[in-house]
Design a protein around this nucleic acid. Structure first.
Length: 274
DNA sequence: ATTTTCTCCTGCATGC
DNA sequence: TGCATGCAGGAGAAAA
C-alpha cells in the first residue's frame, strides 16, 4: 500500500528517467481502472513532446508535458515500473508508455484502486482530485502543527482519523498515522480537538520524522522497483506498532492492541499512549 | 458541518 | 489439497 514515501521515491526515479524524454507510443489495455481513462487526451498530452517535469501532490504523481499532465494514483496495489520492451507483460498490466530507446514504463494494478487521468496545465490545482487536498507535511514552508491545531478545533473524531483526512494533511495513511502517534505517545482515540498545540507540535515532528526516514530508506532510483517485480517492500521495515498486534511495545514491553476507527485498523501501545 | 459507511477490486491468510 | 470466507485499504461519494 503505497504511502507518501513510496510515491516520493517513485517520483524521483521517474523524474530521473523521464525528464527530457518523449514517449513514442502510449497503450491502454482497458478503458477504465477506477474511472474511465481519458485515453485520447492522454495520448495527445504524452506523445509528440517531451516530459518537462515530474511532480508530486500528496500521493498523486504528475507527469507534465507542454500539453498538460498525466495524473497517477497508485491506490492500493498500483506499480509504475520500467521494463524492456521484450519483457513479457505481467498480469494486470493496464497501460504501457513506450520510450524511443526500447524501454517502457508500465502501469500494473491488480486491485484497480489506482487512477490514471489527465490534467490541463491551466487548471493544475483546480482539478477535482487535487483541489481539496490539505497541506504537504514535508513542505518546509508549511507550519504543520499550526495547521493541525487550527483545523482540529471543531473536530471531535479521533486524532488518528483526523490525521488520515487528506483534506487536512496529505500522505499520512493508516500505517504512518499509527506509527507517528506511537512515537508522539498520543492515544489515537483522543478527540482531535482535545489535542493541544504543544502536542500537535510533537506529533508534527514525528510525522515528518517517520515520513523522512521512510523516504531515506527507500533509495532514490526506479531500479529499486523493477529489480523485484515492482514491489518496494522497504517501507515495511522499522514499523513499531502497525501490524504488531499482541507483540511487545518496543518502548515498554506492553502488548500492542488493535482497535477499529472509521472501519480501519488502529494499532497502539495501551501503556505508552494513554 | 461533521462523521460514518459504502464502494471499488484482487490477493492472501485462515479454517474446515 | 481445495474450497469458502473474510479481511486489507485510499479516498471520493453517499448517507447519516
Amino acid at each position: 500500500m503505497p504511502e507518501l514515501p513510496e510515491v516520493e521515491t517513485l517520483v524521483r526515479g521517474v523524474r530521473e528517467e523521464l525528464v527530457g524524454q518523449s514517449f513514442v507510443n502510449v497503450s491502454f489495455f482497458r478503458a477504465d481502472i477506477r474511472e474511465p481513462i481519458p485515453v485520447a487526451r492522454l495520448k495527445e498530452i504524452l506523445t509528440a513532446q517531451p516530459v518537462h517535469s515530474v511532480t508530486r501532490r500528496g500521493k498523486y504523481m504528475l507527469i507534465h508535458t507542454s500539453q498538460g499532465a498525466l495524473g497517477v494514483h497508485l491506490g492500493m496495489s498500483g506499480k509504475f515500473v520500467l521494463s524492456e520492451k521484450h519483457e513479457p507483460h505481467v498480469l494486470h498490466t493496464h497501460a504501457i508508455f513506450e520510450l524511443g530507446d526500447g524501454r517502457e514504463f508500465r502501469f500494473i494494478d491488480p486491485r484497480r484502486f489506482g487512477r490514471l487521468f489527465s490534467i490541463e496545465t491551466k487548471e493544475l490545482d483546480l482539478h477535482p482530485f487535487l483541489a481539496k487536498l490539505g497541506v504537504e507535511p514535508l513542505d518546509l514552508g508549511v507550519n504543520l502543527q499550526k495547521h493541525l491545531f487550527v483545523d482540529s478545533r471543531s473536530r471531535s473524531q479521533g486524532v488518528k482519523v483526523f490525521l488520515m483526512d487528506s483534506s487536512v494533511v496529505v500522505g499520512v495513511g493508516n500505517i504512518y498515522a499509527s506509527e507517528s502517534l506511537w512515537r508522539a505517545r498520543i492515544n489515537p482515540h483522543t478527540s482531535a480537538k482535545q489535542i493541544t498545540l504543544k502536542m500537535y507540535s510533537k506529533l508534527s515532528q514525528k510525522i515528518i520524522e517517520v515520513l523522512s526516514e521512510a523516504i531515506n530508506a527507500g533509495g532514490t532510483t526506479l531500479r529499486d522497483y523493477r529489480n523485484k517485480d515492482g514491489n518496494p517492500g522497504y517501507f515495511q521495515t522499522n514499523l513499531a506498532v502497525y501490524g504488531r498486534e499482541a507483540k511487545p511495545c518496543l518502548k515498554c514491553g506492553a502488548k500492542i492492541i488493535k482497535t477499529t476507527q472509521a472501519a480501519r485498523s488502529t494499532y497502539q501501545c495501551p501503556v505508552c499512549q494513554k
